[in-house]
């Protein structure tokens, strides 16, 4: 569009146009604008409608199962009594491990690479690798984790292994989004802070990280939402399908009141439970699968919604 405008204006310099010609030109450009915005709108509507139809279809299919018992029942051979208790507890605990490991490490790496790392070939290699890692198929992380966590470090086919695997998967996303967020802080802010005598660390902690927090958070939550729906790497490290007991509780009644035994428990996650039900012959199980699918989509939407809301809140509070 820009180019077209320029060439047109050049032409008009050479050869003056009549009023009608100019009007026709404006009209045709306005038409182009209209066509483009219509295409854009149609594309958005199409994408949203697809998601909506999918979601409504799942909810309608799974509606009879979307009740309290569905969340408090273990898997069972009787579809009517089968629920997602072990699956959602497993998913949540794994997400917790993923969060605790990937977020501090990812944010720290992002800050270091963006602000502290010397610009040399070694940093360049790390940067290229981190960016590439964000696009590596998830099964590769599963294979890495199987070799490293399960067989080398003997962590077993447990919640901690799954959490670390998804942590690895999420790490590049957090690093990249942290760097993007930091980069968007105007230089003037840093210079102002330095000017009143702040050290580099103070500039980072009090200004750069705080102002870019919204962006960092978005990256974290998008990474978590992706990890939540992952199946391939989790199956590779040895997720179970039938598990009708919960991991040991993290809080105990005897000192020291906190137990890490749950990290060593076997597990299953929501997408695996859904897949297992979907491949059963009985139609009643397909209803369960649809309900589980609706729960996964709702969780993902909830996480993305939280990200948008937090970003909005934080941006609003920043006063430069």
């Amino acid at each position: 569009m820009m180019k077209e405008n320029m060439s047109n204006s050049e032409e008009s310099l050479i050869k003056p146009k009549t009023l009608e010609e100019v009007r026709a030109m404006i009209k045709s450009h306005k038409r182009n604008d209209f066509i483009f915005s219509s295409i854009g709108l149609l594309t958005i509507i199409f994408a949203l409608l697809t998601l909506l139809i999918l979601f409504v279809d799942l909810v309608m299919d799974g509606y009879p199962k979307l009740n309290y018992e569905f969340f408090t029942d273990f898997p069972s051979r009787r579809a009517a009594h089968a629920g997602i208790l072990s699956a959602w507890v497993g998913s949540s605990l794994i997400m917790l491990v993923t969060f605790v490991t990937a977020v501090p490490m990812g944010v720290a790496t992002g800050v270091y690479l963006e602000e502290y790392a010397p610009k040399n070939w070694f940093t360049d290699i790390i940067e290229i690798n981190v960016t590439n890692l964000a696009g590596v198929p998830s099964i590769i992380y599963g294979l890495l984790a199987l070799g490293l966590f399960v067989y080398t470090f003997h962590l077993g086919q447990t919640i901690v292994t799954a959490g670390l695997t998804l942590g690895l998967l999420m790490l590049p996303i957090v690093i990249v989004s942290t760097r993007e967020a930091i980069r968007s802080i105007p230089v003037a802010i840093r210079e102002a802070a330095y000017a009143v005598g702040a050290t580099k660390w103070q500039v980072m902690l009090h200004h750069v990280i705080q102002y870019s927090f919204g962006g960092i958070l978005t990256g974290i939550i998008i990474g978590m939402a992706r990890a939540l729906g992952e199946t391939a790497p989790i199956i590779t490290v040895g997720a179970l399908t039938f598990i009708a007991f919960l991991p040991p509780a993290p809080l105990t009644s005897v000192p020291p009141f906190i137990s890490f035994e749950w990290l060593q428990s076997g597990f299953t996650v929501l997408p695996i439970q859904m897949f297992s039900w979907l491949s059963r012959p009985e139609h009643a199980f397909h209803i369960n699968a649809a309900a589980a699918g609706a729960v996964i989509i709702m969780l993902t939407l909830l996480m993305n919604g939280t990200a948008i809301w937090l970003r909005y809140r934080i941006r609003k509070n920043i006063k430069w």
């Binding site: 490991t101 890495l144 966590f149 470090f153 962590l155 901690v160 670390l164 690895l168 890490f260 035994e261």
Partner: peptide, 20 residues
């Protein structure tokens, strides 16, 4: 990096692993 990460994590959790 991944080795370092794994080593860090492994050292944190080895204790609880043996217990269980």
């Amino acid at each position: 990096k991944s080795l370092g990460l794994a080593a860090l994590v492994a050292s944190t959790f080895t204790f609880s692993y043996n217990v269980n």
